[in-house]
Simulated scan of single mutants.
Amino acid sequence: MSIAERGFLTEDRIEARAGNRRGFCSRDIVCRQGDPVGEIYRIERGTVMLYQILRDGRRQVVDVICTGDYLGFGDGSVQDCFAETLTNCEVTAWRIDDAQKCVVWRDAFSRAMQRKLGAMHDHVTLLGKKTALERVASMLMRFVPACSGRLCPGTPPAGYAELTHEIHMSRQEIADYLGLTLETVSRAISQLKREGLIEAPRPSQIVIKDLCRLCRLAVLH
Rank of each mutant, 00 (worst) to 15 (best):
R55V: 10
G38P: 09
E44F: 01
D63M: 04
S26V: 14
G46Q: 03
L71S: 06
L54D: 15
I43T: 03
G74Y: 04
T67R: 03
C66N: 10
R32V: 08
D35F: 08
Q60W: 14
L71E: 05
D35I: 07
Y51K: 03
R58F: 12
S26R: 14
G46C: 05
I53V: 15
R58I: 14
V30F: 03
V64Q: 04
C66R: 10
R58T: 15
L50W: 01
V61C: 01
D28S: 11
Y51P: 06
A18Q: 11
E39Y: 04
D56A: 01
S26N: 15
F73N: 11
V30G: 03
Q33A: 09
N20M: 10
S77C: 14
S26L: 11
M49D: 03
D75Q: 07
E44H: 06
G57F: 07
R58W: 14
R21D: 07
Q33I: 09
L71K: 07
V37N: 03
Y70K: 09
I65D: 00
I65R: 00
I65M: 04
P36H: 07
T47H: 12
T47I: 15
D63A: 04
D35R: 10
R21C: 08
Y41N: 01
R55W: 14
L71Y: 02
G76M: 13
L54R: 15
